[in-house]
Every structure is written in C-alpha cells, then in structure tokens.
Design a protein around this nucleic acid. Structure first.
Lengths: 219, 219
DNA sequence: GCCGTACCGTACCGTACAGTACGGCGGTGT
DNA sequence: ACACCGCCGTACTGTACGGTACGGTACGGC
C-alpha cells in the first residue's frame, strides 16, 4: 500500500527507484506480459532473484508492487513531441498522422494491453489507483500533449473549434476507434504496422475535414 | 467448461436455459455487479439459494458459469432497431443520434462495464471465450445492426463511402470516443444522460459531415 | 575482529476458494 | 407405499497464494 519514495511525487517521473528496484520492476513487467494480473509475489521474487521479504519491504504489499510497476513503465514511455513551429496545413496533417501512428502503435503493444487489462481488472474490485495511474499516463498525458498543438494550429488559422477538449476527444475517437477495446477483449490478430498507418492517416484527414479551416488548406 | 445446452447453439439466443437456471444466472449478474470477477461459486449458490453441486452440474466449472452468465445477459440486451423506410437526411441524422444515444447508455451502464471488465481480465490469462462473446454481442452485433442502415442510406444517395466497415468504425469512434475506456479504468463520474445526448448528437453531425452527400442535405 | 545493515533463500502460516461428497427432502412415476 | 431423482445445504479436501519469520551471507564502518 505504501511505495517507499514514489508515494511522494505526484506524477512519478520515476527517479525514485534504485537500480536494483528497477531490475525487480522490469522482472514484474515481464511477468505481467505473460501472466497478466495472475503474477504472484513468489514468481516476481524468483524471476528477479530477490526475496519476497524484500518485495514487501520495498513495496508494502502486492498492490504496492503493481502500482510501482505501472508507474515505472509509465515513466519509460515517451511519446513523440509533436511540437512544431512554422505550422502549415500540410505539416499539421502530417504531424497529426505521425503522432497518431506512434500513439496507436504503443496502444496496441503487448505491454499497453497487458497493463490496461490489469488496471481494468483491478478497478472493479480493489481500491488501488491503478486505473487512475494508467489514465493519467495514457489518455490524460496524450491530451496534454495534443491540446496545445491544436490550439497553436487554431491560432495559426488552420483549425476552428471552441472547445479544445471536444476537439481532442474527437481526435481520440477517430484515431483509436474500436482498436483498443478489441485488443483488450482478446481480438486477434492485432493490426499490423501498415493497417495502423492507414487508419491514422484517414483519421488525420477526417479530423481536418471536421475542424480544418477550408480557405487555409493550401491545395 | 461445458455449458449443458448453450454449448450447442453458436450464437446463444438464450432459450437454452430453464427458468431456474435463469434465476441463478441473474443472481450471478447481481454479484458480478458488486464484486466483478471476484465472485465466488459459494456466493452465487448462496444468493440463488441453490447448491454448489447444482452449479457444477449445470455449468461444469466456474468458467462455464461465467460464460453462461455473459451469454444470458447478452441475450437480454436488445438495442433499438433503427430500421427505417422513407429515409431522408433529417431522419437519418435523428436515427443515428438516437441509436448512438441508446448504445452509449448501455455501454456506460454498470452491467456493461462490469461484464467488459471481467471479460478483459479473463482474456489475459484463461482461454475462456468471454472476450469473444462480449465482442460478438457488443461491437460485432452493433456493426451488424448499423451497417445495413448505412448501406440503405447510401443507396438513397444520402451517404457516400466505399468501405462499409470503415464507415462504421468511424461512426464507432465518433460515438464512443474515450468514454468506454475511461469508464473501464474506473474514471468517475460516468457521463449523465445529458452529456451522452450531447455527445451523440455531435457524433451524428460529425459523421454526416464526413460521409454525407452535401447536395442531398435539404437542411 | 566485531557489529549493524541489507539482502537472499526457504520454510512456514493462515486463509480463501475451486471442486467433491454426502445426507436429507420434496416431488413424481408406478 | 415405495423407489427414484433432482436439488438443497453443509461439510470436507486440496491447493494456491499473500504475507511473515528466520537462518545464512556479503559488506561497510569502527
């Protein structure tokens, strides 16, 4: 229930874990990949060559270990920046499509799926903030990254909208569609690189159709 | 692992369960609502005033009970039809918005969230077809319902698209956005009736902007 | 050399829960 | 009346796993 140091910093930039602790958390991540929520404290200890007692000392309990693991993974994921000066219509579209592609690739990765599944499984029962953490570092973090760009594009006269949140949610829907929920429900195969690229290009096009300012389209 | 009769029919219209069995499955649904995947065979037996032995006799094992429960719930959900003759632009938009509203309402209901969460929790570990069942009766069933309408509207000259699947996926994305994943990850409060209505009306409008045939809009 | 600290490995405990066994009981056919 | 059957209730078994205790080892300070 109590993560030694990561408890303190609100947003968990992840500097709170020692080298050895990070090894342990990586072991936990590997196990989550193959066993999902079914990982046991013993299996983590075995995989990381550490003792269960140490796990409890460092992370308090099972929930604390899971929380720390999710935070650790979140601190590793670094999505592309998408900040860009000299915006024009074409580069905006390209930037949105590139960003969406990278984002969807992460979202359909084994790790994202496993972690989201685990967080969802927990949100129904335990009062661990796993769902909140995943939400903060997933959907929320993406929003924080995208919204300024949308507003920048609006200021440049390329987009038109009143509600940034609404515009971002629309972008989210156009990009993600049913892909994530299908993946989470075990639908296979996952979309490949090409399918993702194709979908996100369409999404960028559609988003601009909805929110773009026609006279500034250039071409 | 083996559901007595429901095993036979592929799509489970749900007539395979006796009155008493349906009572038991309803008890299981109630428990899933409050305990999610954490429901125990004993709790179901207690709630339904039946013996564990009967549960095992009828449903084989815990997985079989869960599967039957999900099928039973799926057989109960009946989304509005949306079939409509004499399509015009306005009635199409209204129909899509109404349908989307009803759909999103179901999707954000306690029962949908609990069942989806359970199916997701299982898809990571067990090889039970829970995820597939939910997918078939959720996303897939919706598609089957919506696609003919889209094609009908296209034949009437109201919509323009080549790929029905693509058009439907776009509709899905515009309607669902981040609502479902946020709900599954425990984000609260859930959108209320008004927020849903507002979102789905926007979605219908956006969908028509993307796929509507302008000259037939007849405002 | 001695002590404290941190950690590993393993054994152990308690509990929760899936699955089974069995006695009892009410209904139905003969 | 009696046998049979489906079901309830309850007790039981086996096991998996969270959490704890403890002995053994390596290391740094004094």
């Amino acid at each position: 229930m109590a993560v030694a140091a990561a408890q303190v910093d609100q947003h968990g930039e992840g500097e709170a874990f020692s080298e050895r602790q990070r090894e342990v958390l990586d072991a936990a991540l590997e196990l989550i990949l193959q066993a999902g929520d079914g990982l046991t404290m013993a299996s983590v200890a075995r995989r990381a060559s550490c003792s269960k007692e140490t796990l409890y000392k460092w992370f308090g309990d099972r929930d604390g270990l899971l929380t720390a693991t999710v935070q650790w993974q979140a601190s590793k994921v670094r999505l592309p920046s998408l900040d860009r000066e000299n915006l024009d219509y074409r580069s905006l579209k390209q930037g949105l499509a590139d960003f969406a592609e990278s984002w969807l690739s992460v979202l359909t990765g084994q790790m994202s799926i496993a972690l989201n599944a685990m967080a969802i499984a927990h949100s129904s029962s335990a009062r661990s903030g796993l769902g909140g953490i995943v939400l903060d570092n997933g959907r929320f973090a993406i929003g924080q990254r995208v919204k300024p760009v949308l507003e920048m594009a609006r200021d440049a006269g390329l987009l038109a909208f009143d509600d940034t949140e609404e515009a971002f949610c629309t972008f989210f829907g156009l990009v993600v569609r049913d892909v994530q929920i299908r993946a989470l429900l075990g639908d296979r195969p996952l979309p490949d690189k090409q399918a993702i690229r194709q979908g996100t290009e369409l999404a960028a096009q559609q988003f601009l159709t909805l929110y773009g300012v026609p006279e500034n389209e250039g071409r």
